[in-house]
């Protein structure tokens, strides 16, 4: 650092704008949670929001042990998580392989992409009654529903990510005598990974939604089944305990994928998912 730069830095540090920055925004973050709790407590105690929709914080906390230590609660959680993980693994694998297949040939892309793009539009929940009619109330239907829900996000991000490699880099690989497979494994897939992880993140969210909706519509077990039962007995506090568990499932999934991305795509530290967002 030269002398002038040092002086400039001192001037920046002394400016009011820099001082204001010293408050971490996470202080505000920590303040928001009690605020939310206070608002929740207020609107439920004064009955602005009816208790059938939102019970008081105290009653939810009281219901917690009752719900968690009820017979077979662990089995229900394991059941739902298995459905989500199974469906996500299935849908993401199919999406990834199909994305790879279509990216390898512009002819296949021209033939199938228009029809596959229409899949973006289709609300997969409408297929839930059909799937239940096909395979019944068991876990297979939930796995299928979750797979259907998450397939598209992984497919389209894989396809767009694999096309991101610089033409010059592809030419370099070719001029060094790399095979198609080597170009794919060492150039295209690594380039695509940050984008694909964006798709996985989105897909995980939709897979969870698919599994829940399917459990709501017809099931013999799982957290969604418990929710419908508690709702039937107007036990809203217990219902919110299970919503809390779904929040935990969602957050854990998010963090796991985020952590995997950080470890696997260690050369990039952003989680920006879309190629058109990247700054030069």
């Amino acid at each position: 650092m030269t002398r002038t730069e040092q002086i400039a830095q001192l001037a920046i540090d002394a400016s009011p704008r820099a001082k204001r920055k010293k408050f971490s925004p996470y202080i505000l973050t920590a303040l928001i949670a009690p605020l939310i709790l206070a608002v929740w407590w207020f609107v439920t105690e004064t009955r602005i929001v009816p208790p059938i929709l939102l019970p008081t914080p105290a009653s939810v906390v009281q219901s917690f042990p009752r719900v968690v230590f009820a017979d077979g609660f662990g089995d229900q959680i394991i059941r739902t998580v298995t459905e989500i993980v199974g469906g996500f693994a299935l849908g993401a694998t199919i999406g990834f392989l199909l994305g790879m297949l279509l990216s390898s040939s512009s002819r296949l892309r021209a033939a199938y992409l228009p029809a596959l793009s229409a899949l973006e539009a289709i609300p997969t929940v409408i297929l839930a009654p059909i799937i239940i009619a096909w395979v019944g109330f068991g876990m297979e239907g939930k796995v299928m529903q979750a797979a259907l829900a998450c397939f598209y996000a992984v497919f389209i991000t894989t396809l767009s990510g694999l096309g991101l490699a610089e033409p010059n880099a592809v030419n370099l690989m070719r001029s060094l005598g790399a095979s198609r497979w080597q170009t794919m494994a060492k150039l295209r897939v690594p380039t695509a990974l940050p984008v694909i992880f964006g798709g996985l993140q989105l897909g995980a969210t939709t897979a969870i939604i698919g599994a829940i909706v399917s459990e709501f519509i017809g099931s013999v077990g799982g957290l969604g089944y418990l929710m419908i039962r508690y709702r039937g007995s107007f036990d809203t506090a217990a219902y919110w305990v299970i919503i809390f568990f779904f929040l935990v499932i969602g957050l854990v999934t998010y963090l796991l994928i985020w952590y995997a991305e950080k470890k696997i795509v260690f050369w990039r530290h952003t989680a920006i998912t879309r190629p058109d967002l990247e700054k030069p």
């Binding site: 929709l53 969870i208 939604i209 829940i212 909706v213 919503i243 969602g250």
Partner: peptide, 15 residues
């Protein structure tokens, strides 16, 4: 974002 918002569906229908 992590909370699947469809969990609210049965409650909203009930209300």
């Amino acid at each position: 974002q992590a909370l699947p918002k469809v969990v609210l569906a049965p409650l909203l229908i009930g209300w």
